[in-house]
Design a protein around this nucleic acid. Structure first.
Lengths: 331, 331
DNA sequence: AGAGGAAGCGAAAGCGGTTTCGCAAATCAC
DNA sequence: GTGATTTGCGAAACCGCTTTCGCTTCCTCT
């Protein structure tokens, strides 16, 4: 267990060189003969030496830690981005220090001071992908700040987020490819940024195909019961609808139940496509799918965030992650 | 931005005391007059001094970092425990360093050495809550190790996990309370630990009520399509079944579709209860529910793990988190 | 052969604190 | 009033490693 830990000076002594030489040999820096370097290395290996990562980071002024600021860490989407980024960063020996806005009464300024005091190496701001822009904190840190699954008011911020318009386009294109022409859309609050943009993308493709919505877009909530409720209205108003683009899988689930309850077949009479890829999010491994959906690429966002953070100079601006259609039984 | 960061010697100088005195004053240790202590404190405040957490930890030999070992960080349950624990730990200034077994070819021994080199303050091992015991790593660290959502072979390990038997009991008790008597059970692989224990708990309550399963327990997979498939068989064999305890919400979803497809009403003819609380996991905020389910308490596991880690001496042994019935429209 | 430059290595100075230890002043006992 | 304690504070060592800087060698070129 607590077998005496080997320090760099032990290695240096054993190798018969100075502490500084040992350091340089192991770090690959500075001018050192290949022979010495190799000798120190093998000695270190033989002794089972491991750097005291803490002291090491400390001497370098870096903490090997990334600060993460979330609005609500319990949000399922936030969790996915968080877990993915943490995994990637962990593989690169970077720890994460999470400050959730919901916890404690620490305000943002306090969090920033704390993070700076800890000599954080970078910051990730994770949003919820919907309505509100994140305030730009970039100028308050002297380390890289990356925004994930949100947007900010400063166009020079490094942002990685979902491509909601493309999601809308993909959804309608998919339905069109299945021969559907009388398409409706049920989605969330009208002021929700993601809902708006998905609808806009969808309409764009629809217009290109010379079509219009089979019934006006129904804005409501990101909820299963709203899907159910909206479909009931929809079928009353446009009974011949043959496809519904649902703004989320939750809405899609509710919608499917209502469509079936009306005696219609899915996907025979009405095709359904959602957004989020719930089943994947809930299952991890590949599963047989039920609801056709669009994966917004949350894990990819997490991966890219980690990659950009380790990148010495990421290009500023918004980077959209490509969404993917996941075909299943409802289309 | 990069406003010159205040160091402890700045404070000492400004307060007209030595570095060591300043350190002691701010740490509350050693013999120091209250006047001096107060003076140093206000000076520090005035200057906006913040400890360099890194140097500080370093000097104390602690990293303010918790190591987290996961089997598969992309597992949705793992993510919940991880995110919750990270949030709680973040509130206590503890960072987490995540090593996922799936990433890289770093084996466990290597991870352990890395973590020890980093002078980690504690370790969390997060399992997937199902089949396999986690190997006990406690003796390989000299800091606290806590196992979450899994079990180990060493009864002295500190473990916090779900109470699968209680989940089974609650499910059947709930169905009985709704007046159901012809109850069936559809669940996952027969060798899955969670599936077994849930079934065992359920049978216990059933037996107490002088009942038996309406049809033998159907073991299959944790998947939606299995729920659909199993219900079809079940209804053929026991058409008068009036309630189904589904081993997971995914199974429950499939089951519901099949029950409705058979022309039966839910919950009129057949009541359904699942396990996992998917809707909550996918929504965070309180939503109107559809499927009655049992929340296994993943977030509570995460919270307790964080609390135990910060606790100077946690009691060894297994601690079960109480599951909760979440009533909705299917019962 | 001699000058100049590059390569290799170690001494020493940090990094930003904590902690031990010793000394001087203040308090106490008698 | 004198000696024994206690109290308050600072000098210095230390944590484990990185990095600068200067001193030797060893080449290379003329």
């Amino acid at each position: 267990m607590a077998d005496q830990v080997i320090t760099l000076s032990d290695v240096a002594a054993a190798a018969g060189v100075s502490l500084s030489t040992a350091s340089k040999a192991l770090n690959g820096t500075d001018r050192i003969s290949e022979a010495t370097r190799e000798h120190v290395r093998t000695t270190a290996d033989r002794l089972g030496f491991r750097h005291n990562a803490l002291a090491r980071s400390f001497a370098r002024g870096r903490s090997q830690t990334i600060g993460v600021l979330t609005h609500r860490a319990s949000n399922p989407f936030t969790r996915v981005v968080l877990a993915t980024a943490a995994t990637e960063l962990g593989a690169k020996e970077q720890a994460i220090l999470l400050y959730d806005a919901r916890i404690g009464d620490r305000d943002v300024t306090e969090s920033i001071l704390q993070l700076r005091a800890r000599r954080i190496d970078g910051v990730i701001v994770i949003g919820t992908g919907t309505s509100f822009p994140s305030p730009s904190l970039t100028s308050r840190f002297d380390v890289p700040v990356i925004y994930a699954f949100t947007f900010t008011e400063d166009p020079d911020d490094v942002t990685i987020t979902a491509d909601d318009e493309e999601i809308g386009r993909l959804a309608v294109r998919h339905l069109l490819s299945k021969g559907r022409r009388r398409i409706a859309h049920i989605t969330a609050e009208p002021h929700d940024n993601a809902a708006q943009r998905r609808a806009a993308g969808a309409e764009e493709v629809l217009a290109e195909a010379g079509l219009r919505w089979a019934s006006p877009v129904r804005f409501g909530r990101w909820r299963e019961d709203w899907g159910e409720e909206a479909v009931a209205e929809l079928l009353a108003e446009a009974p011949d609808v043959d496809a519904i683009f649902c703004g989320s899988d939750a809405i899609g689930r509710g919608a499917e139940r209502a469509v079936r309850a009306s005696g219609r077949d899915v996907p025979g009479d009405v095709a359904l496509i959602g957004v989020d890829n719930w089943e994947q999010l809930m299952h991890d491994q590949r599963v047989s799918r039920h609801l056709t959906t669009i994966d917004v690429g949350l894990e990819e966002i997490g991966r890219q965030v980690a990659a950009h953070l380790l990148d010495p100079d990421p290009q500023p601006g918004v980077r959209y992650v490509a969404p993917q259609v996941v075909t299943a039984k409802t289309t």
